[in-house]
Computed example of a mutant assay.
Amino acid sequence: MGADLRTWPGLPYALLFLEWEARYPLEWTQHAKAWGTKESLIRTVARAAQEEAIRAKLTDLVELVVIRAYRCKDREYVRVARVVDSADLRGRLERAADSDSPWARCHAGYVLWLLDRPDIPNTRRVWQTWVAGEAASLL
């Protein structure tokens, strides 16, 4: 696949695969569980800015992922959020960060925090430190 994802014939299927996992996690786990594939596809779609329709789809995916319970490789969506960063995405993340859901508050807060700090890497250690701080603030 070349650098221009708009011409990649697999893009609609990659987006569908990621949407399936985001919207129907139990069914996806039962029939298609492939964490490495999920991670690889997220990294692929986050490599380059996209046309508006694809950016909108990716923004929807980031929102879907942050409002549900965290699943394996979800942290990779920070890559996507950094590529499609916009007032629309930040508004959605702010609403999620203010929601009644502790999952949404934690994950959306983390993504917003990293969007404001592009120099901080999205590592497992950074995520674990963020989660530990959020859990401590709930006690």
Score class of each variant (00 low, 15 high):
27 E>T: 10
80 V>S: 02
89 L>N: 12
34 A>M: 08
83 V>C: 10
79 R>H: 14
72 C>V: 07
49 A>F: 00
124 R>Y: 11
59 T>H: 08
89 L>R: 06
81 A>S: 07
79 R>G: 09
36 G>W: 09
59 T>K: 03
65 V>T: 04
95 R>S: 05
61 L>D: 07
73 K>W: 03
113 W>T: 07
42 I>C: 11
42 I>R: 09
136 A>E: 15
60 D>W: 01
20 W>M: 04
96 A>T: 08
135 A>V: 14
38 K>P: 03
13 Y>N: 11
34 A>Y: 05
86 S>M: 08
35 W>F: 06
39 E>N: 04
23 R>C: 13
41 L>P: 03
2 G>H: 02
104 A>R: 02
73 K>L: 00
72 C>L: 10
44 T>G: 07
70 Y>T: 02
10 G>M: 06
67 I>E: 14
86 S>T: 09
79 R>S: 09
23 R>Q: 15
106 C>K: 09
79 R>L: 15
18 L>W: 00
97 A>L: 03
25 P>K: 07
76 E>V: 01
63 E>T: 10
87 A>D: 15
27 E>Y: 04
60 D>A: 13
78 V>H: 07
97 A>S: 15
117 R>Y: 03
27 E>F: 01
135 A>C: 06
135 A>D: 11
29 T>Y: 05
136 A>V: 03
110 Y>L: 11
62 V>I: 03
98 D>F: 00
127 W>C: 13
113 W>V: 02
107 H>N: 08
79 R>E: 15
65 V>H: 04
9 P>F: 04
47 R>Y: 05
104 A>P: 05
70 Y>R: 04
91 G>W: 13
84 V>D: 11
67 I>L: 06
66 V>D: 10
84 V>R: 10
94 E>K: 09
134 E>C: 06
90 R>F: 02
52 E>K: 11
130 W>F: 09
53 A>L: 11
120 I>E: 14
79 R>T: 01
82 R>T: 03
32 A>P: 00
94 E>C: 01
121 P>I: 04
35 W>L: 09
57 K>S: 03
103 W>N: 12
26 L>P: 00
23 R>H: 07
23 R>K: 15
